[in-house]
């Protein structure tokens, strides 16, 4: 028995969340006295996983792109081959897509949005966020095979230097009736899910024409841009940037909210972010109660200054 972890890559390179779930899997393996096997697709160099505690890598060569049903079936075969009782996955859109199919395939209990290493391995108990980050829930998984979906950025990367062996894995490929026609993705931008830092704007920015300074701030910080719900409803920004209880969850290290009031539904989606900064003209805005650092001021004055100062800071610390 080993722990199986699904490590996602993009253009052959592991995503940060892949290294995070590997770190998580290693922590579980230590608790249970076993080893970690990773299953991965089209990785250029699987040895990187060895730095995060993976003992063995099953590399699948599959050139047809992501398909939830096909991938779920391949991971199932990997789990069977390794007699894995615990499968660790991330909270990426793709992992959340395939996880319920995998759970049905293996008759496994599945806990999503898990934020810590298991609090007990017998009964197997995990802490997960619930009520859109307004609370946590301790859940026991009772089935022989268990799937743990780790919340992005909750566990972090933990180096565990070791060596890893790699083998080609050639599972049988199932067919799927769902085919991708096109992918529309801004490849030059950091996505909210992957970002360490998110710069987010609200209705206080008055109109889409004022987003230039936000994008510039994001560029200086290497951040993703996001927005409040009314901003996407008004069509100032794409829906994919809407964060909050009914939008995307944000679990970044730093979340900078500019001209956002801090309504409960907005805060619910960004609660899992570690450090929050608010810039708002209204000192009474609810966001100040949820933030770590705040500037009471006009975004149109503060943000351009902040950009200049950050550029100086970056130049000095480069």
């Amino acid at each position: 028995m080993s722990i199986l972890v699904y490590t996602e890559s993009e253009q052959g390179r592991f995503k940060k969340i892949a290294l995070e779930v590997a770190s998580y899997a290693k922590a579980v393996a230590n608790q249970m006295g076993t080893t970690v096997t990773a299953v991965t697709f089209n990785a250029n160099d699987a040895s990187e996983l060895g730095n995060y505690g993976v003992d063995k890598v099953l590399n699948v060569t599959h050139n047809e792109g992501f398909n939830a049903k096909v991938y779920a079936d391949i991971i199932k075969q990997a789990a069977e081959k390794e007699a894995a009782q615990i499968i660790v996955i991330s909270s990426s859109a793709d992992s959340k897509y395939l996880a319920p199919l995998l759970a049905v395939g293996l008759n496994a209990g599945y806990a999503s949005n898990v934020v810590e290493a298991p609090t007990s391995t017998s009964p197997f108990t995990v802490k997960r966020s619930a009520f859109t980050n307004k609370a946590f829930n301790f859940t026991e998984i009772n089935t022989p095979i268990k799937i743990v979906g780790v919340s992005n950025n909750s566990f972090g990367l933990v180096e565990n230097l070791g060596s890893t062996t790699s083998e080609e894995f050639s599972p049988s490929i199932t067919s799927s009736n769902v085919t991708v026609q096109s992918i529309d993705k801004a490849t030059d931008k950091v996505s909210i899910a992957d970002a360490d830092i998110v710069v987010s704007g609200g209705r206080g920015l008055k109109g889409p024409e004022n987003w230039g300074m936000l994008e510039e701030l994001a560029e200086v910080l290497g951040a993703a841009t996001a927005c409040s719900k009314p901003v996407s409803d008004l069509g100032w920004r794409p829906h994919s940037e809407h964060v909050g209880q009914t939008g995307k969850p944000v679990a970044s290290n730093l979340y900078i909210a500019i001209g956002i009031s801090g309504a409960i539904q907005h805060l619910a989606g960004i609660n899992a972010s570690k450090v929050k900064v608010v810039i708002n003209t209204d000192a009474e805005a609810p966001f100040f109660k949820a933030a770590d650092y705040g500037v009471v001021g006009d975004a149109f004055e503060v943000v351009p200054q902040l950009i200049e100062k950050l550029k100086e800071f970056k130049a000095q610390n480069a």
Partner: peptide, 28 residues
């Protein structure tokens, strides 16, 4: 397959640290 054992509320957070808009170096 799974059962909920217990709930927990997030730990209360400390008060916000305010930085003057004229002193953004401090924020950085």
């Amino acid at each position: 397959e799974t059962n909920s054992v217990k709930f927990e509320k997030p730990a209360p957070r400390g008060a916000v640290k305010l930085v003057s808009p004229d002193n953004l170096d401090e924020l950085i």
